[in-house]
């Protein structure tokens, strides 16, 4: 349970306001994207800024509606936010007025409300503590987000997403604003959580960082100007580490291939190329 189908999806700005049905070339963000993500796959989406990665995630989350085409989960069309999906954003992942523990509990509460699971207050607290423990943030349970560093906040956001126990996880450049060291630590954490989890969740993970994508993904999709340009399988054994991947010939070849995509892409600018190295 958790396979996603994106069927010939187009998204253009301006149409949400009920404007003309023929999108102009400039406002076209997604241009006929089709993608099938099987249950339990870890998919990374890479591509230059403005390629429509975040828009695709917003459509998956039900925060926006496609101009044409359809997205569905397990054959059921996505028609709004739903709690079969949990998520981690780059910013604003946590509510600043809730303590760490309350943030996680709120996610669990919402998920249980919608999915019809009967969870008492104590159950929620216990689950929240359990997941905070897994991301090593239990000590900060009584702190407010502003008292934590960016990396710690993202750890809590990951704990919240996992604690909601949904079959699909959506990450929108969750580590994009962090320094390299923190980013590596959190990538390791996600890799560890995902490969040791008893039930494999379907993950859609947007990133700028090629080493990050290689570390985490089963499959990498390259998006440019609203279209899928490349779709690569990453058949590397798990568990993976960044160091091991740097020495691995297959991984290095893949990294070169993906880096080349950026260099050859006319829509990628210098900043994109700076960022892909991680």
């Amino acid at each position: 349970m958790g396979s996603i189908i994106v069927d010939n999806v187009t998204f253009a700005y301006g149409d949400e306001a009920g404007g003309a049905a023929s999108p102009s070339a400039g406002s076209l963000v997604l241009d006929g994207v089709s993608l099938h993500i099987p249950d339990g796959q870890f998919l990374c989406i890479i591509g230059p800024s403005g390629s429509g990665k975040t828009t695709l995630l917003r459509l998956l989350l039900g925060l926006s509606e496609p101009t044409s085409g359809q997205l569905s989960i397990d054959g059921k069309a996505i028609d709004g936010p739903g709690l079969d999906r949990s998520f981690v954003f780059q910013d604003y992942s946590l509510f600043p007025w809730m303590k760490v523990q309350e943030n996680v509990e709120f996610g669990i509460e919402q998920a249980s409300k919608v999915l019809g699971r009967a969870l008492g207050r104590e159950d929620r607290a216990r689950i929240a503590r359990d997941y905070l423990q897994r991301v090593k943030m239990l000590d900060a349970a009584d702190k407010y987000p502003y008292q934590l560093s960016g990396g710690m906040q993202q750890r809590v956001a990951i704990a919240r997403a996992l604690a909601m126990d949904t079959q699909i996880l959506i990450f929108d450049e969750p580590f994009g604003a962090l320094d390299v060291k923190t980013r590596r630590a959190l990538q390791g954490l996600v890799e560890e959580l995902w490969s040791t989890g008893c039930d494999r969740k379907t993950v859609v993970f947007v990133t700028h960082d090629i080493p990050e994508a290689l570390l985490l993904a089963d499959r990498i999709v390259y998006l440019s100007k609203g279209s899928i340009v490349a779709d690569v399988a990453v058949d590397l054994p798990r568990p993976r580490t960044v160091e091991a991947l740097e020495r691995d010939a297959v991984a290095s070849a893949l990294a070169r291939e993906l880096t080349d995509l950026f260099y050859r892409d006319p829509n990628a600018d210098e900043r994109d190329i700076d960022e892909i190295a991680g």
């Binding site: 925060l63 936010p81 954003f89 604003y92 992942s93 709120f106 998920a111 409300k113």
Partner: peptide, 13 residues
């Protein structure tokens, strides 16, 4: 903030 709002909406709030 739109981000907070998206966060809440995506949680089904």
């Amino acid at each position: 903030d739109q981000g907070l709002l998206d966060n809440a909406r995506a949680l089904g709030v």
